[in-house]
Measured scan of single mutants.
Amino acid sequence: DVEPGKFYKGVVTRIEKYGAFINLNEQVRGLLRPRDMISLRLENLNVGDEIIVQAIDVRPEKREIDFKYIP
């Protein structure tokens, strides 16, 4: 289970104008929005990159997770 405030290693699987989709595993995916990136820009991410993200909002009923990147 993903818990708000905890850090997780994930893989960038898709990049859109509104953010990057990060997979923690095959069943768990969330969104990293540009506003939640500190010292990292969306255009510097590539599909396949491994990054450490912090879960900031977890909505299991909608199967949605918002992430934050903190270097």
Rank of each mutant, 00 (worst) to 15 (best):
D66P: 02
I56Q: 07
F7R: 08
E43Q: 11
G30D: 02
G10M: 03
P34G: 09
Y8F: 05
E16H: 09
L42R: 03
I65Q: 03
F67R: 01
R41F: 10
R59T: 05
K17G: 10
Y69V: 05
K6A: 09
L24A: 01
I51L: 13
L32K: 01
K68M: 13
I70S: 11
F21D: 02
L45M: 09
R33S: 05
E26W: 15
T13F: 05
D36G: 03
E64V: 10
F67N: 01
R59N: 09
D1A: 15
N23F: 09
P34C: 07
I65Y: 08
N23M: 12
R14N: 07
K62L: 14
Q27F: 15
E64W: 14
R59F: 06
Q54G: 04
F21L: 10
N44E: 15
R33D: 04
K9I: 12
L42W: 05
R35V: 10
Q27V: 13
I51F: 04
P34M: 08
N46P: 01
A55W: 03
I22N: 00
A55S: 04
P34Q: 13
V11S: 07
G5Y: 09
V53I: 08
I56S: 07
F67E: 02
K6G: 10
Y8W: 02
Q54C: 09
Y18E: 08
I38T: 12
L40R: 06
G30E: 02
D66H: 08
I52V: 14
Q54Y: 12
E3M: 15
K9S: 10
K9P: 07
P4H: 08
G5A: 04
Y8R: 00
K68C: 08
D49L: 07
I51W: 01
V12W: 02
T13Q: 07
V58R: 04
F67D: 02
D57T: 13
V12T: 01
K6V: 09
K6T: 07
E3T: 14
L31N: 02
A20L: 04
Q54A: 07
V2P: 07
M37D: 03
L45V: 07
E26P: 15
D49V: 06
D1Y: 15
D36P: 01
G10E: 00
D49P: 01
V28N: 08
N23I: 06
E16A: 13
Q54F: 13
I15G: 00
I65L: 09
E50P: 12
Y69W: 09
G10T: 01
V47G: 01
R33E: 02
